[in-house]
Design a protein around this nucleic acid. Structure first.
Length: 766
RNA sequence: GUCGGAGUGGCGAAAUUGGUAGACGCGCAGGAUUUAGGAUCCUGUGGAGGCAACUCCUUGCAGGUUCAAGUCCUGUCUCCGACACCA
């Protein structure tokens, strides 16, 4: 009989759906396991092989937990609002509303064809009014708590996307995976160190604009401390720590000669105050922002006085001091700071080196020259976007009352369906051209007022989606308190490390705010996060522009989802960056066929008598169990293959040995194993809700053990010892010396030392 | 520049309280089957030498510690990633 993956996979996908196999009862949270994979944005090309790799990794863990008696909730959704979706819609000249409808449908079909155990009754689409209604609600809560404010600030502006960006969305070209481009779309050479838009790779500009911010800086310390409580990889924690960038120091005030003004300086090294020789202020004029990293300076003609030694410090304006960090002014200490040294040398400023003086921390404070101060790299989160495809910000500006929140019962503020949705780059979003949208009444005084026409950053949408899943269907609140209490936080969050300082930090921040509002009872949404690697193709990140995107559809069609799942998991460890090649997938197809054939041999109902099989079976169970827990799916599959290789030569097979095989393989190849379980092994319920097999430790020790024997550290022979005699050192050593091969090497020499490692090896030093 | 991670056959990769390097798979070679090809099955497969038994070499490179090093230490090279005028 030939295995027809097309028929079998479809059959079980339909059956599972019908029997609600993956739809847990959310009122029962006993043994709950909320297994979540970061939802993707539905791109036009659909899922690529990288999604198949990551989502399968998450699904395997969920299936494993389900077979271990857990009540697994594994939902799926679409991050469908935002620039990424909108840019594509613009490109193909179609309304994003229509595009998203199509792409989400395509995604669902693809995810279903992978055979993942998603609860399809609980999906989330961020561009759906039922969802963004609550994103708007979130904004209002932020505002009411004083955590949302509008302010004119120097902000990042992408001339290609024609909108402002959050600091976190301004990245290096390599991070964006794109060639750096100028505002005309021309590739900039040697632009590796430049800062570009995360979305399109265009060099960002600085603009002074009135923008909405979330006060994430209020939570800097808690975001930092929280990292100690969560089970994340160090790499991701370090990235967040670095981004928050806490540094402790002092603010020191310098008097300006011949003036009442003082200049405040932030420094982490007050102990170098003695050696300060100049003051440097940030200068917008000199900060041409692009290209040049060369330090530029202009002497102001003014001097400040160093309080400790009355030295006259020339005040310079320069481009190497950041206006947005600290006070925007530094004391230049060339002797102890490399950048200050460069600058001093270039402009002929004095260089003085006095001894470091720890006491200064205290003295500066005592004498009233300055105060302790802590600075952060973290900036407030810029959440407004001058774009169309996002949740409208639910604020109204009244000439009398100022900014007012929209009344909550008016939500959602619907995003109107307009045809002129392209961004114009005027500093206002497309909604500003629609009086029927923005003309409204003040919620407070009812006089004419204007709606905010900017929309929210897509990262606001994704900052709380995990709270919505268990409450999908509940209409009068974003998330039900009881359900949330039962199902949150997420038990295992699976996702890409590229979100280390974006999504993962925003989500933590929002959760902390909701916790402070008493709406959730935990601070950390993802106590356990696993960062999977990034699948590459021909040595490079998969991207449409490189033309190396691999579509899994054709592989599913040709080889089946199970074979594809096994194949991508077998390529390497989950946290690695596997390079997709299709040269090996046929080998995996051979493996699934071999498994299929194995189940079509005559069965033995009685228990396993063959020790070799029995031992191998238990060893395999133990190995696979351990490997799955550590996300080492590649070696788990290898162990299953070894087991299959032991069973393959047999003419008849014990039913038990096959039942175990079906179970071990079930998380990896759910359709094939289900077919074998029910149709061949004739079992009643699904293999996916059976109990995970238990490996018995005592079966892992064979009756005899082969011990390698070395002479001078080189392998010279092997002896076979009965397990029961493992401890008889003298006897074993004697046996080892008598081994023909070993004896040959011992001849003529004198044994100086005998190394005997229990269970492991013997070494004679001659 | 700073901080991480990595470097193992023709290829993807295994191997950690230091204890048989290369599991598992791909590819390749030979064989069986077949009119032939494909598919399947069996055998072999790190390199060098040898008819063979066997010997020597081998985890980027150079040293060191140890009975024993892919694993620990020192130095060095290469690649990748994160951060980067942060005061």
């Amino acid at each position: 009989m030939i295995y027809d993956h097309r028929k079998v996979e479809k059959k079980w996908q339909e059956r599972w759906e019908k029997e609600k196999l993956y739809t847990p009862n959310l009122t029962n949270s006993k043994n709950k396991f909320y297994n979540l994979w970061m939802f993707p944005y539905p791109s036009a090309e659909g899922l690529h092989a990288g999604h198949a790799f990551a989502s399968t990794g998450s699904d395997i863990y969920g299936r494993f937990m389900r077979m271990n008696g857990m009540n697994v909730f594994q939902p799926f959704g679409y991050d469908s609002f935002g620039i990424h979706s909108e840019n594509y819609a613009i490109k193909i000249n179609e309304n994003p509303n229509e595009v998203v409808k199509r792409t989400t449908k395509h995604y669902e079909e693809q995810m279903r064809s992978m055979g993942h155990g998603y609860d399809w009754t609980k999906t989330v689409t961020t561009s759906d009014p039922d969802y963004y209604k609550w994103t708007q609600w979130l904004f209002i809560q932020m505002y009411k708590k004083g955590l949302a404010y509008k302010n004119k600030a120097s902000v990042n502006f992408c001339p290609s996307c024609k909108t402002v960006l959050a600091d976190e969305q301004v990245v290096s070209p390599s991070q964006a995976g794109k060639e750096p481009k100028d505002k005309d779309g021309k590739v900039v050479k040697d632009g590796k160190d430049l800062k570009v838009c995360e979305r399109c790779g265009t060099l960002v500009l600085k603009k002074d604009l009135d923008q909405w911010f979330f006060k994430i800086t209020d939570y800097a310390d808690r975001l930092l401390e929280g990292l100690n409580k969560i089970n994340w990889s160090e790499r991701v924690k370090i990235a967040q720590k670095a981004w928050i960038g806490k540094s402790e120091g002092m603010i020191i005030n310098f008097e300006v000669e011949g003036s009442k003004d003082t200049l405040s300086v932030f420094t982490t090294r007050p102990d170098t105050l003695d050696s300060a020789t100049f003051i440097a202020k940030s200068s917008k004029e000199l900060d041409t922002l692009e290209e040049s990293k060369e330090k530029l300076g202009k002497f102001t003609g003014l001097y400040a006085i160093n309080p400790i030694n009355d030295r006259r410090l020339p005040i310079w304006e320069t481009n190497y001091v950041e206006g947005s960090y600290g006070t925007g002014v530094i004391m230049g200490v060339p002797a102890y700071d490399e950048s200050d040294m460069d600058f001093a040398k270039k402009y002929g400023i004095d260089i003085v080196e006095e001894d470091l003086n720890e006491i200064l921390w205290k003295e500066i404070k005592d004498k009233g020259w300055g105060e302790k101060n802590t600075n952060y790299h973290l900036r407030d989160w810029l959440v407004s976007r001058q774009r169309y495809w996002g949740a409208p910000i639910p604020m109204v500006n009244c000439s009398k009352c100022g900014w007012q929140t929209v009344s909550e019962d008016e939500l959602p503020i619907l995003l109107p369906n307009i045809s002129d949705y392209k961004p114009e780059g005027t500093g206002k979003g497309p909604l500003a051209n629609h009086p029927d949208f923005y003309k409204t009444k003040c919620p407070k005084c009812n006089s004419d007022a204007i709606r905010e026409t900017d929309v929210m950053d897509t990262f606001v949408d994704s900052s709380w989606y995990f709270l919505r899943y268990p409450s999908v269907g509940i209409e009068n609140k974003p998330f039900d308190k009881e359900v949330t209490k039962k199902w949150l936080p997420v038990d295992l969050y699976f996702g890409g490390a590229e979100h280390s300082v974006l999504h993962l930090m925003y989500a933590r921040f929002v959760t902390m705010v909701l916790s402070d509002l008493g709406l959730v009872s935990f601070e950390e949404p993802f106590p356990k996060f696993f960062a999977h690697g990034l699948m590459i193709k021909d040595g490079a990140k998969m991207s449409k522009s490189r033309g190396n995107v691999v579509n899994p559809d054709e592989y599913i069609e040709k080889y089946g989802a199970d074979t594809l799942r096994l194949y991508v998991m077998f390529m390497g460890p989950m946290d690695g960056d596997p390079d997709f090649r299709d040269t090996g997938i046929e080998g995996m197809q051979r493996f699934t066929k071999r498994v299929w054939n194995l189940f079509h041999k005559p069965l033995i109902e009685s228990e396993i008598k063959d020790q070799k099989i029995l031992y191998k079976m238990h060893q395999t169970i133990i190995k696979v169990t351990k490997d799955i827990q550590e996300y080492k799916y590649n070696t788990a599959i290898a162990a299953i293959m070894e087991y299959v290789n032991v069973l393959t030569p047999l003419d008849k097979l014990n039913k038990e040995s096959l039942m175990v095989l079906a179970k071990l393989l079930a998380p990896f190849a759910p359709h094939l194993t289900e077919e074998l379980w029910i149709e061949i092994l004739d079992q009643k319920g699904s293999v996916h809700i059976t109990n995970w097999p238990r490996g018995i430790e005592s079966y892992t020790k064979n009756e005899t053990i082969t011990i390698p024997v070395q002479v001078n550290g080189k392998l010279r022979g092997q002896i076979v010892v009965e397990s029961s005699k493992l401890n008889s050192k003298d006897e074993i050593l004697k046996l080892a010396k008598e081994d023909i091969k070993v004896a040959k090497w011992l001849k003529g020499g004198k044994v100086k030392k005998e190394i005997f490692i229990l269970n492991k090896l013997i070494n004679f030093v001659v």
